[in-house]
Design a protein around this nucleic acid. Structure first.
Lengths: 237, 237
DNA sequence: GCAAAAGTGTTATTAGTACACCCATGC
DNA sequence: GCATGGGTGTACTAATAACACTTTTGC
């Protein structure tokens, strides 16, 4: 007997995003103010014939008013508490602080992550998970770069790590690790911005992030790489 | 202006699972035969008022005919190729070989992973990703245990790793690492199963998997502190 | 006694951690 | 000349990787 993959029921599908950036106040999230001092995460609905990841990108850009530097699907929640069996697909989005943001493009504001108050249980779950993933990924990917401008100093980079992690890291060990990783490329210019020694400027040496792990290669759009990696995962016996 | 999180459209939501177990032929997948030598991954639809993870568990148990040892959500795909905008939520499921499986409970059969032929593009994506995640997780979690019976020898465990990874690992380093991790507990009994020295039997010392996210040591500080800091970053100031 | 799998240590290399002072600049 | 952040090295410890022989059993 062969089972039919029958599709019987339908559910509303919702996309919910956590847009992060690094501001003067540290790690910030873009939220919609709602009610008395509460906020809600930006969300939306995919259009017909639209991949979820494409829909997420569109929704994030519409709401935030600028282009994200990084987008990653997190987790999908089915909430039985909702009458209509809403399914929420959550995304993490990273922005550069220096990019122009139409602050009020959609009633959206950037708030320090620790000051956000989310009345929605689902929103809290999504934010918690996004933060956890972001922190974890600092350790084994170059994800932090997506929060920084194209050129930056090692101190900038370290501050980014500390802002996300929530605790200080050792300067010498940090710099050694970063330089050893050889994803940084030192520029000739230096940045002079105060009464102190100028800081060397860096940029990323390579475009291809190795966020390989949790993000499937085909979920990121790099056709050639995708094919190879999928092939390899079967061959390697 | 405050944006409404309007839920306008609905989509069929489908759950697709990759049930793995370790058999004599190495890593096997449970599939439905379909067409001429092709297969399809087991799939189903969530019921009303059912969490996705609960639905996935139910579907996997119905199809495979026994209880999975481990279940994890993988990725959610919106396939614009389907007329009705089907959304597929994919899951990884691990089974113990020795459990009784109603082989034909739903026309389902276990096949060596490398021999599976999936006509569906979506099915191939899901299987590829499941395998990638399973392999990656071997390295930093005790996920392999869910593929083994309650008691096992170190050789069993090593064979499990090798079957999933697809390459041999060093016996002495493997045993040292496993024992050092102190998640194993040696039993008094030994297993005699051939004309050779009997092997010591082990079981898992703890129930709680630490699939703790890939948290690098230097991002960690002390465990409690991290927990606090995650909490703190949400509690409104 | 021999086949078959279990079990066991050492060495070399690499990665991580802790820690404190001098350097270049603007004012 | 002093305040400010930029930049540097060393010693200790822990983790990883490579590598081959002895032990216990069934027959």
């Amino acid at each position: 007997m062969v089972f039919k993959n029958t599709i019987a029921a339908v559910s509303p599908v919702r996309i919910s995003a956590v847009p992060f950036r690094l501001g003067r106040a540290g790690l910030s999230v873009a939220v919609h103010p709602v009610g008395e001092g509460g906020q809600r995460l930006p969300a939306g609905v995919p259009a017909p014939a639209e991949w979820l990841d494409v829909a997420a990108r569109r929704i994030v850009r519409e709401r935030v008013g600028s282009h994200e530097q990084y987008l990653e699907q997190l987790y999908t929640f089915g909430d039985p508490a909702t009458e209509d069996r809403t399914v929420t697909v959550s995304y993490l989005a990273l922005f550069r602080d220096h990019e122009r943001h139409d602050e009020d493009s959609a009633g959206l504001t950037w708030m320090a992550a620790r000051e956000v108050v989310l009345p929605s249980e689902m929103d809290r779950r999504v934010l918690d998970y996004a933060l956890m993933r972001l922190r974890a990924k600092l350790g084994y990917t170059n994800i932090a770069f997506h929060l920084l401008p194209p050129t930056f100093t090692l101190s900038d980079l370290q501050l980014a790590y500390e802002a996300v992690l929530g605790h200080p890291v050792d300067k010498r060990n940090f710099r050694r690790r970063m330089i050893a990783s050889s994803i940084l490329e030192q520029l000739d210019e230096k940045r002079r911005d105060g009464s102190h020694r100028p800081a060397a400027l860096y940029r990323f040496a390579s475009r291809d992030d190795r966020e390989a792990y949790l993000t499937p290669p085909w979920a990121m759009e790099r056709p050639e790489v995708v094919a190879e990696s999928i092939a390899a995962s079967h061959d390697s016996q």
